[in-house]
Design a binder for these strands. Structure first.
Lengths: 210, 210
DNA sequence: GTCTATAGGGGGATAGAC
DNA sequence: GTCTATCCCCCTATAGAC
């Protein structure tokens, strides 16, 4: 871990350039299909420097993955554990924040979900960030709504899956959508903006459906 | 393409054994992370035979992918173009059939969607099977419902995304669900069976939501 | 810290015996 | 058709000069 000196504007150090390039390439191609040469080329640095700073391709990958998952969960737990905001408000914020987040890095979901499936070295099992979800205020509020009869289907996992599915899946399936439906990039982005408002409406309708 | 002789019971030929093993390994690890040695080991055949029958790893992969996509779309187009069945009935059939299909091969969705993202050799662009979707009876019926005011959101892509999201996404996110939520395999399978009935109910509720 | 050159190993593919 | 042995390229990683 090289010390990051005085970060005047943005960190333009070699270390950070490599990480930035690694994110781009790993997100797009996954670990196995990525060559260290790709990362070196993408960042404009020499191949040997990758090993100088990060020891190995695998070490660099683990670092990127850890930071990515952390970023993904970070402001989410903040939303989920807010005692003040209502259940409905949380749904709106989750949809809105996740969509904004993923629009900036559209490849993150498919990247994470495809790397997790063959988690040979048990990287994901040791990730600290994931447990708080189940004891969050959000889930307690969900439970309340179930007992009050405001939500028909009692299984909270169905609810969680549905919320994530409506929010995340469009990005995962966007290549297919563009291929089959001929949807353009700008069309797609506009649709995702629309969904910030649509998803909460849909979810609320689903809650009462039977 | 070796001729498949008289298939008495099930095709137990070497060629078919290799393909079967290739499906297993490709589905689980993706193209780049798969070694031809993995496939040989999985099928119990000699490594050289893979090249004897299929010329190269890439050729074998293309074959598997083509057959996979075809199977995925096959009975679906049949459902979508049935003039007799109602719009609602089609929704039920799609959810039910897709879930049955994916339960048998849970890795197919993440496999397809992660391979399509970096489609370097343009394999997916040349796939014949995908176009009929947009001119199907199903989409015409959707359009009717929009004009009749039975569906609030007019964009058919939102509808398609939502239906696929609720059906397919659970399988893609199942590793995460098992990790974070501690959901067991049997629990998960039961939930997927429940969703055959739940998804049509939810979708109908979403249609009228605003 | 950054470069060039190269070691070292893994993995796809093939030659050739049977 | 099936096997063993082997080729050879590509990719990660490191040695060593600057």
């Amino acid at each position: 871990m090289a010390k990051s000196k005085n970060a005047k504007t943005i960190d333009t150090s070699t270390e950070e350039k490599i990480k930035k390039a690694a994110r781009v390439v790993f997100y797009r191609k996954g670990f196995a299909a990525t060559r260290t040469r790709d990362i070196a080329e993408e960042s404009g640095i020499n191949l040997a420097l990758l090993n100088y700073y990060f020891r190995s391709k695998e070490k660099l990958f683990h670092l990127i993955m850890l930071e990515t998952v952390s970023g993904f969960v970070q402001n989410m737990t903040f939303i989920l554990n807010n005692e003040k905001s209502s259940f409905e408000k949380k749904i709106e914020l989750i949809a809105s924040n996740y969509i904004d987040f993923i629009v900036k890095e559209p490849n993150i979901p498919i990247f994470m979900l495809s790397e997790i499936r063959n988690d040979a070295d048990g990287l994901f099992e040791s990730l600290p960030v994931l447990q708080p979800l189940m004891q969050s205020v959000f889930f307690k509020q969900h439970q309340e709504y179930v007992t009050k009869g405001k939500i028909v289907e009692p299984n909270p996992f169905h609810f969680l899956i549905n919320l994530l599915a409506l929010t995340v899946f469009p990005f995962i399936s966007s290549p297919l959508l563009k291929l089959v439906g001929g949807v353009s990039n700008t069309q797609f982005e506009m649709m995702m903006q629309d969904r910030k408002k649509l998803i909460p409406v849909w979810i609320k309708a689903m809650m009462k459906a039977k």
